[in-house]
Protein backbone atom coordinates (compact mmCIF):
# COMPACT_ATOMS: atom_id res chain seq x y z
CA UNK A 1 0.00 0.00 0.00
CA UNK A 2 1.37 3.39 -0.95
CA UNK A 3 1.94 5.74 1.91
CA UNK A 4 0.51 9.08 0.77
CA UNK A 5 1.23 10.86 4.00
CA UNK A 6 3.79 13.54 3.39
CA UNK A 7 6.00 14.43 6.30
CA UNK A 8 5.11 18.11 6.43
CA UNK A 9 3.24 21.01 4.89
CA UNK A 10 6.29 22.31 3.04
CA UNK A 11 6.67 19.02 1.15
CA UNK A 12 2.93 19.05 0.39
CA UNK A 13 2.82 22.54 -1.13
CA UNK A 14 6.15 22.07 -2.92
CA UNK A 15 4.17 19.87 -5.32
CA UNK A 16 2.34 22.96 -6.64
CA UNK A 17 4.45 24.58 -9.39
CA UNK A 18 4.39 28.24 -10.38
CA UNK A 19 1.58 28.97 -12.81
CA UNK A 20 -0.65 26.09 -11.64
CA UNK A 21 -4.44 26.30 -11.71
CA UNK A 22 -5.39 25.80 -8.05
CA UNK A 23 -8.92 25.32 -6.74
CA UNK A 24 -9.73 26.22 -3.11
CA UNK A 25 -12.96 25.92 -1.12
CA UNK A 26 -15.24 28.60 0.36
CA UNK A 27 -14.65 29.93 3.87
CA UNK A 28 -17.83 28.55 5.52
CA UNK A 29 -17.59 25.14 7.16
CA UNK A 30 -13.92 24.84 7.98
CA UNK A 31 -12.41 23.11 4.94
CA UNK A 32 -9.95 25.92 4.21
CA UNK A 33 -6.35 24.68 4.28
CA UNK A 34 -4.96 27.82 5.92
CA UNK A 35 -1.79 26.26 7.37
CA UNK A 36 -0.92 24.95 3.90
CA UNK A 37 -1.74 28.36 2.41
CA UNK A 38 0.78 30.02 4.73
CA UNK A 39 3.35 27.40 3.67
CA UNK A 40 2.58 28.24 0.03
CA UNK A 41 3.21 31.92 0.74
CA UNK A 42 6.51 31.15 2.52
CA UNK A 43 7.62 29.05 -0.44
CA UNK A 44 7.10 32.05 -2.72
CA UNK A 45 4.92 30.27 -5.28
CA UNK A 46 4.05 32.62 -8.16
CA UNK A 47 1.55 33.14 -11.01
CA UNK A 48 -1.18 30.89 -9.65
CA UNK A 49 -4.57 30.80 -11.36
CA UNK A 50 -6.78 30.51 -8.29
CA UNK A 51 -10.32 29.20 -8.75
CA UNK A 52 -12.50 29.75 -5.67
CA UNK A 53 -15.24 27.14 -5.19
CA UNK A 54 -17.28 29.21 -5.36
CA UNK A 55 -16.04 32.05 -3.09
CA UNK A 56 -13.13 32.76 -0.77
CA UNK A 57 -12.02 35.08 2.00
CA UNK A 58 -8.81 35.34 3.96
CA UNK A 59 -7.16 32.54 1.95
CA UNK A 60 -7.45 34.29 -1.43
CA UNK A 61 -6.71 37.69 0.10
CA UNK A 62 -3.50 36.37 1.70
CA UNK A 63 -2.30 34.69 -1.52
CA UNK A 64 -3.03 37.84 -3.54
CA UNK A 65 -1.39 40.17 -1.05
CA UNK A 66 1.73 37.97 -0.96
CA UNK A 67 2.05 38.13 -4.74
CA UNK A 68 1.30 34.45 -5.41
CA UNK A 69 -1.61 35.05 -7.79
CA UNK A 70 -1.74 36.06 -11.45
CA UNK A 71 -5.44 35.30 -12.05
CA UNK A 72 -8.39 34.90 -9.72
CA UNK A 73 -11.56 33.24 -10.98
CA UNK A 74 -14.26 33.80 -8.39
CA UNK A 75 -17.88 34.52 -7.50
CA UNK A 76 -16.79 36.60 -4.54
CA UNK A 77 -13.91 37.37 -2.21
CA UNK A 78 -14.93 38.83 1.13
CA UNK A 79 -13.98 38.79 4.80
CA UNK A 80 -17.75 38.64 5.49
CA UNK A 81 -18.53 40.35 8.81
CA UNK A 82 -14.95 41.68 8.89
CA UNK A 83 -15.51 43.66 5.69
CA UNK A 84 -14.24 43.70 2.13
CA UNK A 85 -11.12 41.69 1.27
CA UNK A 86 -8.53 44.50 1.29
CA UNK A 87 -5.62 42.99 -0.70
CA UNK A 88 -8.01 41.63 -3.34
CA UNK A 89 -9.60 45.08 -3.73
CA UNK A 90 -6.21 46.82 -3.90
CA UNK A 91 -4.89 44.36 -6.52
CA UNK A 92 -7.95 44.77 -8.75
CA UNK A 93 -7.68 48.56 -8.47
CA UNK A 94 -3.94 48.45 -9.30
CA UNK A 95 -4.51 46.01 -12.17
CA UNK A 96 -1.87 43.69 -10.70
CA UNK A 97 -4.06 40.56 -11.01
CA UNK A 98 -6.44 39.39 -13.71
CA UNK A 99 -9.98 39.09 -12.39
CA UNK A 100 -12.34 36.55 -13.91
CA UNK A 101 -15.79 37.14 -12.45
CA UNK A 102 -18.23 34.28 -12.15
CA UNK A 103 -21.37 33.34 -10.25
CA UNK A 104 -21.54 30.53 -7.67
CA UNK A 105 -23.62 27.93 -9.56
CA UNK A 106 -21.45 28.45 -12.67
CA UNK A 107 -18.30 27.59 -10.72
CA UNK A 108 -19.98 24.47 -9.32
CA UNK A 109 -21.28 23.58 -12.81
CA UNK A 110 -17.84 24.03 -14.39
CA UNK A 111 -16.25 21.80 -11.75
CA UNK A 112 -19.01 19.21 -12.19
CA UNK A 113 -18.31 19.18 -15.94
CA UNK A 114 -14.64 18.66 -15.08
CA UNK A 115 -15.65 15.84 -12.72
CA UNK A 116 -17.63 14.14 -15.50
CA UNK A 117 -14.98 14.68 -18.16
CA UNK A 118 -17.40 16.53 -20.45
CA UNK A 119 -16.62 19.81 -22.24
CA UNK A 120 -19.42 22.00 -20.82
CA UNK A 121 -22.74 22.03 -19.02
CA UNK A 122 -25.72 24.29 -19.78
CA UNK A 123 -26.92 26.56 -16.96
CA UNK A 124 -30.04 28.71 -16.58
CA UNK A 125 -29.83 32.37 -15.63
CA UNK A 126 -26.87 34.64 -16.44
CA UNK A 127 -28.17 35.98 -19.78
CA UNK A 128 -27.99 39.79 -19.71
CA UNK A 129 -25.42 39.81 -16.90
CA UNK A 130 -22.11 41.57 -17.48
CA UNK A 131 -20.48 38.38 -16.17
CA UNK A 132 -21.34 36.79 -19.54
CA UNK A 133 -20.51 40.00 -21.43
CA UNK A 134 -16.93 40.03 -20.09
CA UNK A 135 -16.24 36.28 -20.35
CA UNK A 136 -15.58 34.98 -23.84
CA UNK A 137 -15.58 31.40 -22.53
CA UNK A 138 -19.24 31.56 -21.43
CA UNK A 139 -21.28 31.06 -24.63
CA UNK A 140 -24.98 31.56 -25.19
CA UNK A 141 -26.21 28.57 -27.23
CA UNK A 142 -29.60 27.35 -28.46
CA UNK A 143 -31.35 24.64 -26.49
CA UNK A 144 -31.20 21.76 -29.03
CA UNK A 145 -34.50 20.39 -27.71
CA UNK A 146 -36.64 23.54 -27.92
CA UNK A 147 -37.09 26.46 -30.32
CA UNK A 148 -35.93 29.94 -29.32
CA UNK A 149 -34.56 29.02 -25.90
CA UNK A 150 -31.12 30.55 -25.32
CA UNK A 151 -29.06 28.99 -22.53
CA UNK A 152 -25.50 29.57 -21.28
CA UNK A 153 -22.78 26.95 -21.83
CA UNK A 154 -20.33 26.81 -18.91
CA UNK A 155 -17.01 25.19 -19.90
CA UNK A 156 -15.46 22.51 -17.71
CA UNK A 157 -13.06 23.66 -15.02
CA UNK A 158 -10.17 21.21 -14.66
CA UNK A 159 -7.79 22.55 -12.01
CA UNK A 160 -4.25 21.21 -11.83
CA UNK A 161 -4.54 21.01 -8.05
CA UNK A 162 -7.22 21.04 -5.37
CA UNK A 163 -6.10 22.07 -1.88
CA UNK A 164 -8.40 21.63 1.12
CA UNK A 165 -8.56 20.66 4.80
CA UNK A 166 -10.51 17.70 6.27
CA UNK A 167 -11.13 16.22 9.74
CA UNK A 168 -9.56 12.79 9.10
CA UNK A 169 -7.12 10.99 6.81
CA UNK A 170 -5.90 7.40 6.94
CA UNK A 171 -2.49 5.96 6.03
CA UNK A 172 -3.82 4.69 2.71
CA UNK A 173 -4.53 8.27 1.64
CA UNK A 174 -8.31 8.16 1.96
CA UNK A 175 -9.73 11.38 3.41
CA UNK A 176 -12.98 11.92 5.31
CA UNK A 177 -14.82 15.15 4.46
CA UNK A 178 -17.18 15.35 7.42
CA UNK A 179 -20.14 17.53 6.47
CA UNK A 180 -18.30 19.19 3.57
CA UNK A 181 -19.22 16.56 0.99
CA UNK A 182 -19.03 19.15 -1.83
CA UNK A 183 -15.26 18.73 -1.61
CA UNK A 184 -15.73 15.53 -3.62
CA UNK A 185 -16.48 17.70 -6.65
CA UNK A 186 -13.19 19.57 -6.23
CA UNK A 187 -11.16 16.41 -5.60
CA UNK A 188 -12.61 14.63 -8.62
CA UNK A 189 -12.47 17.60 -11.00
CA UNK A 190 -8.82 18.43 -10.25
CA UNK A 191 -5.96 16.43 -11.74
CA UNK A 192 -4.29 16.25 -8.32
CA UNK A 193 -5.62 16.72 -4.80
CA UNK A 194 -3.46 17.85 -1.91
CA UNK A 195 -5.12 17.53 1.48
CA UNK A 196 -4.37 18.57 5.04
CA UNK A 197 -6.08 16.66 7.84
CA UNK A 198 -6.83 17.61 11.41
CA UNK A 199 -5.70 14.16 12.56
CA UNK A 200 -4.76 10.67 11.46
CA UNK A 201 -7.41 7.92 11.47
CA UNK A 202 -6.15 4.61 12.75
CA UNK A 203 -7.52 2.12 10.23
CA UNK A 204 -9.12 2.38 6.80
CA UNK A 205 -11.89 4.99 6.42
CA UNK A 206 -13.55 3.00 3.64
CA UNK A 207 -14.11 0.04 5.98
CA UNK A 208 -16.46 2.07 8.22
CA UNK A 209 -20.01 2.22 6.77
CA UNK A 210 -20.72 5.53 8.54
CA UNK A 211 -17.56 7.23 7.32
CA UNK A 212 -17.24 5.74 3.83
CA UNK A 213 -20.02 7.82 2.12
CA UNK A 214 -18.21 11.09 2.91
CA UNK A 215 -14.76 9.68 2.15
CA UNK A 216 -12.73 10.53 -0.95
CA UNK A 217 -10.77 7.50 -2.01
CA UNK A 218 -6.98 7.65 -2.37
CA UNK A 219 -7.52 7.26 -6.14
CA UNK A 220 -8.06 11.05 -6.18
CA UNK A 221 -5.56 12.03 -3.49
CA UNK A 222 -1.91 12.73 -4.28
CA UNK A 223 -0.66 13.62 -0.84
CA UNK A 224 -1.84 14.31 2.71
CA UNK A 225 -0.19 16.21 5.53
CA UNK A 226 -1.50 16.06 9.07
CA UNK A 227 -2.03 19.64 10.25
CA UNK A 228 -3.76 20.10 13.62
CA UNK A 229 -5.70 23.37 13.66
CA UNK A 230 -5.04 23.45 9.91
CA UNK A 231 -8.02 25.73 9.20
CA UNK A 232 -7.01 28.39 11.76
CA UNK A 233 -7.90 31.27 11.94
CA UNK A 234 -11.02 29.87 10.30
CA UNK A 235 -13.01 27.48 12.43
CA UNK A 236 -13.86 23.89 11.65
CA UNK A 237 -17.38 22.50 12.14
CA UNK A 238 -17.46 20.19 15.14
CA UNK A 239 -13.80 20.88 15.97
CA UNK A 240 -13.10 24.53 16.87
CA UNK A 241 -14.54 28.01 16.38
CA UNK A 242 -13.14 30.75 14.18
CA UNK A 243 -10.59 33.06 15.82
CA UNK A 244 -12.57 36.28 15.53
CA UNK A 245 -9.92 38.43 17.18
CA UNK A 246 -7.39 37.26 14.62
CA UNK A 247 -9.76 37.87 11.72
CA UNK A 248 -10.35 41.40 12.97
CA UNK A 249 -6.59 41.93 13.34
CA UNK A 250 -6.02 40.72 9.77
CA UNK A 251 -8.75 43.00 8.41
CA UNK A 252 -7.23 45.97 10.18
CA UNK A 253 -3.58 45.24 9.25
CA UNK A 254 -4.26 44.25 5.63
CA UNK A 255 -6.02 47.57 5.00
CA UNK A 256 -2.57 48.95 4.04
CA UNK A 257 0.45 47.46 2.25
CA UNK A 258 2.69 48.14 5.26
CA UNK A 259 0.20 46.56 7.65
CA UNK A 260 -0.07 43.51 5.42
CA UNK A 261 3.74 43.16 5.38
CA UNK A 262 3.72 43.29 9.19
CA UNK A 263 1.04 40.58 9.21
CA UNK A 264 3.19 38.36 6.97
CA UNK A 265 6.21 38.87 9.23
CA UNK A 266 4.28 38.08 12.35
CA UNK A 267 1.97 35.25 11.36
CA UNK A 268 3.31 33.69 8.15
CA UNK A 269 7.10 33.99 8.16
CA UNK A 270 7.11 34.21 11.96
CA UNK A 271 5.23 30.91 12.16
CA UNK A 272 8.12 29.11 10.43
CA UNK A 273 10.68 30.82 12.66
CA UNK A 274 8.75 29.79 15.78
CA UNK A 275 8.48 26.20 14.52
CA UNK A 276 12.22 26.02 13.84
CA UNK A 277 13.13 27.00 17.42
Amino acid sequence: MTDLLDTDLDALVARIPDGAKLVVFKAEGGAVAMAATRALVRRGTRDLHVVTAPTSGLQADLLIGAGCVATIETSGVTLSEFGQAPRFGAAVKAGSIRIVDSTCPAVYAGLQAGQKGIPFVPLRGLIGSDIVAFRDDYRIIDNPYRQDDPIVAIPAIVPDYALFHVPLADRAGNVWLGRQTELKVLAQAARHSLVTAERLYDGNLLEDDRLAPATVSSLYVDAVAVAPHGAWPYGMTGEYAADEDHMAEYASLAATGEGFAAYLDRYVNGEAAAAAE
Binding site: S75, V77, G95, G125
Partner: peptide, 21 residues
Protein backbone atom coordinates in the same frame (compact mmCIF):
# COMPACT_ATOMS: atom_id res chain seq x y z
CA UNK B 1 -14.99 50.93 -15.56
CA UNK B 2 -14.65 47.16 -15.36
CA UNK B 3 -12.34 45.33 -14.78
CA UNK B 4 -9.89 47.80 -13.21
CA UNK B 5 -12.45 49.55 -11.04
CA UNK B 6 -11.80 52.34 -8.56
CA UNK B 7 -13.85 50.50 -5.94
CA UNK B 8 -14.02 46.72 -5.98
CA UNK B 9 -16.63 44.82 -3.94
CA UNK B 10 -16.75 41.11 -3.27
CA UNK B 11 -18.38 39.77 -6.45
CA UNK B 12 -21.72 38.56 -7.77
CA UNK B 13 -22.14 35.39 -5.63
CA UNK B 14 -25.23 33.45 -6.79
CA UNK B 15 -27.21 36.50 -7.91
CA UNK B 16 -26.88 35.94 -11.69
CA UNK B 17 -28.69 32.62 -11.24
CA UNK B 18 -31.08 33.04 -8.30
CA UNK B 19 -32.52 36.29 -9.75
CA UNK B 20 -33.77 34.18 -12.67
CA UNK B 21 -34.87 31.03 -10.86
Amino acid sequence: DYPRQKVRWSGSFGSAYLYFT
